[in-house]
Write a protein that binds this DNA or RNA. Structure first.
Length: 408
RNA sequence: GGGGAGAUGCCCGAGCGGCCAAUGGGAGCAGGCUGUAAACCUGCCGGCUUCGGCCUACGGAGGUUCGAAUCCUUCUCUCCCCA
């Protein structure tokens, strides 16, 4: 399919925008060359990033690079959103404890749909191509595969930091895992990628993509490393498995609340990597935090509003802001409390479990003993208490879980 | 191919025949203090329960024993050393 000749912004402007907020680009000169060629021939660059098919819950850490992809699109280039289904179907053995389940074809397709729903909150569907790497890996024979492995060495694979560390400390590295980077690198060959994006932790893989492309007689891709966003715990990188994430599909109050729970020293980083706030404003925030002139909470609220605005709307942001004030600062009841439908009378323990506020009856009981459960502002002290449900009673479990009871 | 070490709750890691639902740390949850920040203090942290207990758990399967996470056999997996 031939793209019609296209008009791009001046190369210098493109460079300015694209390099902003990156951690490292290898190399800027090559990028400029590619952009120049694209400009003169009217051909968009092919920009690629790969995603794990097993975790279709995108969070604002992923969004850092996806937002960069979006910039490429805004400049007129083509983004390939690559789903690593082949590797997912094989099953990733990395980290002995968390053996990932092998995904079936149906799983992969379902996850892909979930991806689309989320990723198009950021990307332009018109300028996005979704591909699966089983398209090429799934059809290659062992001869072609061995040919690929012949293009790299064990010594060079061990250059990768985490492999070397694990090798030296006697941790397991499966051969399959060892071969992953090679498969990923080949993806760039198959797609003829001009640019590949990834987190800084992907540096080795992105560089290997360059090498392998050259081995196959192609021009090397430009490697775009984006900074890794620290999770809401302020310690580890944001990831779903650690639970320290803000999902882009989270409801407004959730996004707002999670953002408010980040440590103060993350405020500037989040503004920089996760919002569209102009840099002069971020500088001002930085200044305020340093001098202590403004309560950090105020800036964090602004950050939380920006985030909600980005993935929902300004209106939702305003509402989330109000809800937060009511719920946590005034200790009241916010507007949009989820309803919980109850038939007849119910034991307080069963009520908590039904609400999903606790994961078991034992836990429900503990929470009551800890004094975390309130019904209509009244602390529940007896876990045997039967509740005569009345419409619009408010059930509160801890500070965050609030329900409005509805009698059926 | 030979020899050695090991697999414990979300993670790390003690236990080495009964006192073990299992020491300790981390994570998490709840309460206090606050700004749902950090730091700090307190409690909880397998499930069910008529609150007396009961059930499920220490890689899998068998066995010894009144009794096993702890001993034996075997299987699976991991690591180290030698070839």
């Amino acid at each position: 399919m031939n793209q019609a000749r296209q008009k791009f912004p001046p190369v210098k402007d493109q460079m300015d925008l694209l390099l902003r907020g990156t951690s490292e680009v290898i190399s800027a000169e090559e990028l400029e060359k590619k952009l120049l060629r694209s400009f003169t021939t009217g051909t968009p660059l092919i920009v690629k990033q790969g995603f794990d098919p097993s975790a279709p819950d995108l969070h604002i850490g992923h969004a850092v690079s996806i937002r960069k992809l979006r910039q490429f699109q805004q400049l007129g280039h083509t983004v390939t959103f690559l789903i690593g289904d082949f590797t997912g179907m094989v099953g990733d053995p990395s980290g002995k404890s968390k053996t990932r389940p092998r995904l079936s074809r149906a799983d992969v397709l379902r996850n892909a749909e979930t991806y689309k729903a989320q990723v198009f909150k950021i990307l332009d569907p018109e300028a996005t191509v979704i591909r699966f790497n089983s398209e090429w890996h799934g059809t290659r024979d062992i001869y072609q595969f061995l040919e690929l492995t012949g293009k790299h060495t064990v010594a060079r694979m061990l250059e990768r930091d985490d492999f070397l560390k694990r090798y030296q400390t006697g941790e397991t590295i499966s051969i399959l895992e060892f071969l992953y980077p090679l498969l990923q690198a080949y993806d760039s060959v198959a797609l003829r990628a001009d640019v590949e994006l990834g987190g800084t932790d992907q540096k080795y893989n992105l560089l290997l993509g360059r090498k392998i492309q050259e081995e196959y007689g192609l021009e090397a891709q430009v490697a775009f490393m984006m900074p890794i966003l620290i999770g809401t715990d302020g310690k580890e990188k944001m990831s779903k498995s650690l639970g320290n994430y803000v999902a882009i599909s989270d409801p407004p109050d959730e996004i707002y609340g999670r953002v408010m729970s980040i440590p103060d020293n993350l405020i500037v980083q989040y503004f920089t990597l996760a919002t569209d706030a102009p840099s002069f404003e971020i500088l001002k925030v930085e200044e305020d935090l340093k001098t202590g002139r403004v309560n950090p909470m105020e800036h964090k609220k602004r950050l939380a509003r920006e985030m909600v605005g980005l993935y929902h709307s300004q209106k939702a942001a305003k509402l989330a802001d109000d809800n937060f004030r009511v719920r946590f600062q005034d200790g009241g009841i916010p507007q949009d409390v989820p309803d919980l439908f109850i038939t007849g009378d119910i034991n307080i323990i069963d009520l908590l479990v039904k609400a999903g506020a606790t994961s078991s009856k034992s836990e429900a009981r503990r929470k009551i003993e800890e004094g975390a459960v309130y019904l209509e502002e009244q602390k529940i002290t007896d876990f045997r208490q039967a509740i005569q449900v009345q419409n619009d009673q408010i059930l509160k479990v801890g500070k965050r879980k609030i329900f409005r009871l509805k009698k059926v």
